[in-house]
Write a protein that binds this DNA or RNA. Structure first.
Length: 221
DNA sequence: GACCAGGCACATC
DNA sequence: GATGTGCATGGT
């Protein structure tokens, strides 16, 4: 089973890569921008995040140090377009304050703890859950941790690689058990799954034309 | 005018 | 431990 799951996951990866091409995530200029974007994109379409990032850039506020020094209300106004802006402003502030306090404002200090240590630290910060933590570790820290989102779980269930109660950890463990810990591939794979979801997972409709249609267990997403 | 988007925290059962 | 709800804007 482990062997076949591995083949299945690699097959899915190859099909998605062939269909969509490399996604080259994360779309950001700096590591701090990745971290900020990871908070802003929570439950939000990326297009709306881009507006918020642009506003932060115009305000010269696209680092955690600057965010740390920006008043909450001002910050919330800058990121309004990303939705739940008051919540996200609080989360960005708590993250920036924590990084300043704990690592003197430097992400290097965090990532130097290694994957497990840095992950534990991040999960202790208000507003950072498993998915956001893994996105930060993978795309900003270049550490090989797999990012699981709702689409990913749906794909795994659909292809019978996971049962009905597929929580975050189970899905993540499945990928990391069956694929070598390769950071570029993990990054590309997650991005491809998001792209798949965006194109074919709307409204639970059967996914006609989905690149995974040819796979045995696929009956739509 | 619904419904959704690259979630998370918190309350409740 | 599972499920429900608030957060809130902009696109379809």
């Amino acid at each position: 089973m482990a062997q076949s799951a591995q083949k299945e996951l690699m097959r899915i990866y190859e099909l998605l890569l062939a269909a969509f091409g490399p996604q080259n995530w994360w779309p950001a200029r700096t590591r701090q921008e990745v971290v900020i974007g990871a908070i802003l994109t929570q439950n939000t379409a990326w297009k709306n995040v881009e507006r918020a990032v642009s506003a932060l850039r115009r305000a010269n506020c696209l680092t955690l140090r600057r965010i740390h020094r920006t008043p909450l209300d001002r910050l919330a106004e800058l990121i309004r377009s990303s939705g739940t802006h008051r919540v996200k402003a609080r989360r960005l502030k708590s993250l920036a304050a924590w990084l300043q306090r704990r690592f003197n404002g430097r992400l290097e200090g965090l990532f130097a703890l290694g994957l497990e240590g840095a992950r534990r630290e991040l999960l202790g910060v208000n507003g950072i859950g498993p998915e956001t933590a893994d996105a930060i570790l993978l795309y900003a820290g270049k550490l090989p941790t797999f990012v699981v989102d709702a689409y990913t779980r749906r794909v795994l269930r659909r292809h019978l690689l996971l049962g009905g109660q597929s929580d975050y950890q189970r899905a993540k463990a499945l990928f990391e058990r069956t694929m070598p810990p390769d950071e570029p591939i993990y990054g590309e794979y997650h991005a491809l799954l998001v792209e798949l979801g965006k194109r074919y997972c709307r409204k639970r409709a059967l996914c006609e034309g989905c690149p995974l249609e040819s796979l045995s267990h696929d009956a739509g997403l």
